[in-house]
Design a protein around this nucleic acid. Structure first.
Length: 430
RNA sequence: UCCCCGGUAGCUCAAUCGGCAGAGCGGGUGGCUGUUAACCACUAGGUUGCAGGUUCGAGUCCUGCCCGGGGAGCCA
């Protein structure tokens, strides 16, 4: 008998097939038994009928508990009464393993309990939908860059010092030396961009900030393109194209999952080019009009970002922040040397920053001066300065946070559900 | 690091003014011929986070600690 997956079940109506999976739930009513089986691709209702009170399959049904693993064989039928429209008329049950006292029931649980059981929580319908969308987002990102001739360049996780010199890093040992877990692949990608023209890296990044909010993880995934000869405007366009591509791909391929999450897709359907662009100065004006006590030169806090994000239907690109609130490598605006040629993209519906990027300094002397001003150890940046010594060109790039993007697309309120095993302040188990 | 909230059965929660610690789910037993987080009946299940204090009497009030959640700063 053919082993099939539930996501393909419609193709087998009228045929006898085999399913391999786990018991999601079971119900009974008199001489009818309902077994909800999940196999990782979906959930299917399996039915057992008997005109007699006793039946060998009833005995096996009784034995089964939530999350017990099994193989069922039977005939696929179309039936409007079944959730999903299809069901399996069971002819044979082969029990593989009986699960005893599965802790997560089909009833509500608290966050703390669910996080302690994250390894099992992943089996639930909602987590399944979110992580399917995450996988789709990642696939879309790779297709987008690969399709545009970008070269994948994996950057190191173990680094000798801070990339940006701003956030706190996780420290580890490198034999007798100290090493730090990477917080960005950008600096290395400036080197690979000079070798390959347009590149991207995609990997985990680490921030040892003691952030305890719904939009922070200590370990998260980021995609970072870097393009030689590109200016600020070039990468804003690239960022727009990328976000439009990701959203339309999820709308196209993961409609069912969005529905599972009760995600209203109308706001997502509006995501098209061009996105609104405002300068930092405009943003300050908007915030002041809304009654915020904020002055030119201040960076935005979470409430400010939420207000800006809610002010537009599409992601908004905020450009030209004051240099002093940004990283040392930011290229100054030729029209106003106090401003940086940078961009932050804020996702709508209150989600806030999903992209940060900009044009990098390509002048050797200016970069050297900034490294000194920021008290960074020059010996660690010799190679980075070299890039400005041998055929330096203007270049730009950005980083997009995967988890924040997934949280926005799914419209879920906490980032911890967008990665299989979140690493958070005071929580490293499981 | 700071601010706010919480910790009672395996889970989600209730417990009036300080007066016998309870319900639903889950488990067990039985019932029901189409269930939809099924339903109905019965049943077992407690160191009320920990330590101390006030009181005739503390889940409830006080002090300290531990753990968790939310937020701030910082950032994607």
């Amino acid at each position: 008998m053919k082993w099939v997956y539930i996501e393909d079940i419609a193709k087998y109506v009228g045929e006898k097939v085999e399913l391999r999976g786990w018991v999601y739930n079971k119900r009974s009513s008199g001489r009818v038994r309902f077994l909800l089986i999940r196999d990782g691709t979906g959930i299917l209702q399996c039915t057992i009928f008997s005109p007699e009170k006793e039946h060998p399959l009833f005995d096996k049904f009784e034995e089964l508990t939530q999350e017990s693993s099994l193989i069922v064989r039977g005939k696929v039928k179309e039936d409007k009464r079944a959730p999903g429209g299809y069901e399996l008329e069971v002819e044979d049950i082969e029990i593989i393993h009986i699960a005893k006292d599965y802790p997560i029931t089909p009833k509500p649980h608290g966050v703390s309990f669910l996080m302690d059981h994250r390894h099992l929580w992943l089996r639930s319908v909602r987590q399944h939908a979110i992580l399917q969308i995450r996988a789709e987002v990642i696939r879309a990102i790779r297709d987008f860059f690969d399709g545009r001739g970008f070269r994948l360049m994996d950057t190191p996780i173990l680094t000798p010092s801070a990339c940006e010199g701003t956030t706190t890093l996780f420290e580890t040992k490198y034999f007798d030396e100290k090493a730090y877990l990477s917080q960005s692949g950008q600096l290395y990608n400036e080197a690979t961009a000079m070798a390959f023209g347009k590149v991207y890296c995609f990997g985990p990044t680490f921030r040892a900030e003691k952030s305890k909010t719904r939009r922070h993880l200590l370990e998260f995934w980021m995609v970072e393109p870097e393009v030689a000869f590109a200016t600020l405007n070039d990468i804003i366009e690239l960022a727009e194209d990328l976000v439009v591509y990701i959203v339309s791909r999820v709308l196209d391929k993961r409609k069912k999952e969005l529905e599972t999450l009760n995600r209203d897709t109308k706001p997502l359907e509006k995501i098209a080019k061009p996105f609104p662009r405002i300068t930092y100065k405009d943003a300050i004006k908007i915030l002041k009009e809304k009654g915020f006590k904020i002055e030119f030169g201040d960076d935005f806090g979470a409430p400010e970002e939420t207000i800006l994000s809610n002010s537009f239907e599409k992601p908004v690109c905020v450009t030209r922040y004051p240099l002093k609130v940004k990283a040392f490598y930011m290229q100054p605006d030729p029209e106003n040397p106090d401003l940086a040629l940078c961009v932050d993209m804020l996702a709508p519906e209150g989600y806030g920053e999903i992209i940060g990027g900009g044009q990098r300094i390509h002048d050797y002397d200016l970069l050297l001066q900034k490294i000194k001003e920021h008290n960074l150890p020059i010996e660690n940046y010799q190679w980075y300065l070299d890039l400005r010594k041998y055929g330096s060109v203007p270049h730009a790039g950005f980083g997009l946070g995967i988890e924040r993007t997934v949280a926005w697309i799914c419209k879920i309120d906490h980032i911890r559900e967008t990665i299989p095993f979140p690493r958070m302040l005071y929580r490293m188990y499981p």
